[in-house]
Simulated scan of single mutants.
Amino acid sequence: MPTTSVQLYSLRDAVAADLDAAVARVREIGYEQVEPYAFVERVADFERALAATGLAAPSGHAAVIDVAEPDAVFEAAARLGIGIVIDPFVPTERWQTADDAKKLADRVNELTVRAAGHGLRFGYHNHQWEFTNKVDGRPVFEIFAEHLAPEAVLEVDTFWATVGGADAPAVLKTLGDRVVAIHVKDGEVSGDIATVLPSSESALDVPPALKAAYDNQVPAGQGDVDVPAILAAAPQAIRVVEFDSYAGDVFEGIASSLAWLQENDK
C-alpha cells in the first residue's frame, strides 16, 4: 500500500482541545503518518506528540508565500522531520490572470530554493478556484504549473479540483511526478460547496452555507469523486486523508477512509 497520511486539520477541534490525545488516537486507528497544519505556532507540542506516538510527518501545511520570515517555517518543519512544506491557501482574488499565475509561480520558485537550503521541498495546495478561474479558456492553475521550476512540487486536493470542474485523474497524469501528495476526500461536488467561497483572509473562515456543505463530505469511496481513478493516476503520491468537516464522528470518518484505502489502494 502506498504511503497514507491524514491531515490533522480534519481533527482541529480535538487538536485544539488536547493535541497529544488527538494524535495518539490517530495512531491507534492505524495511521503511521500525519500532515500537521499551523505547526510553526505549536512546534514543541507537535514534536512531543509525534515522539510519543512514533508517527512521522512527511508533509505539513503552513502559510509561507505571504510570510515575512519563511526560514522560520522551514526551521520548524525540519525540527519535526517534515520533508515537504505546503502552502495551503492563496485566495481567488489572486488567481484571476496569467500575470497572477506567473507571480505566484515566481514566489513558489523562490521559496523552493530557500526550502532546499534547509533540506526541504516546497509547494502549493489548491482549492477549487484555481480550476474554476479561467484565462483564455484554460484553468489558471495550468498556467501556474507551467511557470513552476522543476524542483517545485504540488499537493493536489483532488476533491477541490473535481469541485472546480477539473478531470482530476487527467490533471494528475499531466503533472506527473511533480505531485508529491494528494488530498483524498469524497462527498458531494455540486451546490454550495462549488459556488460559495471562504474569506479572502483565510480558508478557515467560511460562511454558514459553505460550512453546511462541508458536512456532506464522506469517507473515501462513498461520494461523487472518482477516487479509484485518482489513486491510479498518482501512484507516487502520498495519500493524505482529509475532511473539511464531517457530520459524524470525524475519527470514525478517518478510520473508514483508511480502511477503504487499505482495501482498494494496492
Rank of each mutant, 00 (worst) to 15 (best):
R178Y: 14
L231R: 06
V225K: 01
E142T: 12
G187A: 10
V184S: 05
D177R: 15
V113L: 13
E93S: 15
E93K: 15
P36D: 10
N264M: 03
D186L: 07
S190F: 08
A166C: 08
D192L: 02
D13C: 00
E188W: 00
I254W: 06
V184W: 02
A49V: 13
A24T: 13
G248S: 11
E142N: 14
Q222H: 13
V40K: 12
L80Y: 08
P235T: 12
E47A: 15
M1Y: 05
R27S: 15
D99Y: 02
I182G: 10
R107A: 12
V225W: 05
F46T: 01
Y31F: 15
A161Q: 01
A220I: 10
Y214A: 07
A149K: 07
H183K: 07
A247G: 02
E69R: 14
F131W: 14
V73E: 06
A14S: 15
A255Y: 04
A21H: 06
P207A: 13
A170N: 06
F131S: 03
F144D: 02
E75S: 14
T4S: 10
D226Y: 05
V90E: 13
K185G: 07
E32R: 15
M1G: 11
A194Q: 08
I29E: 08
A51G: 14
V171S: 00
Q236Y: 01
A76E: 05
V179L: 11
W160C: 07
S256Q: 15
E201Q: 14
P169T: 04
S199C: 11
V23P: 01
V43D: 00
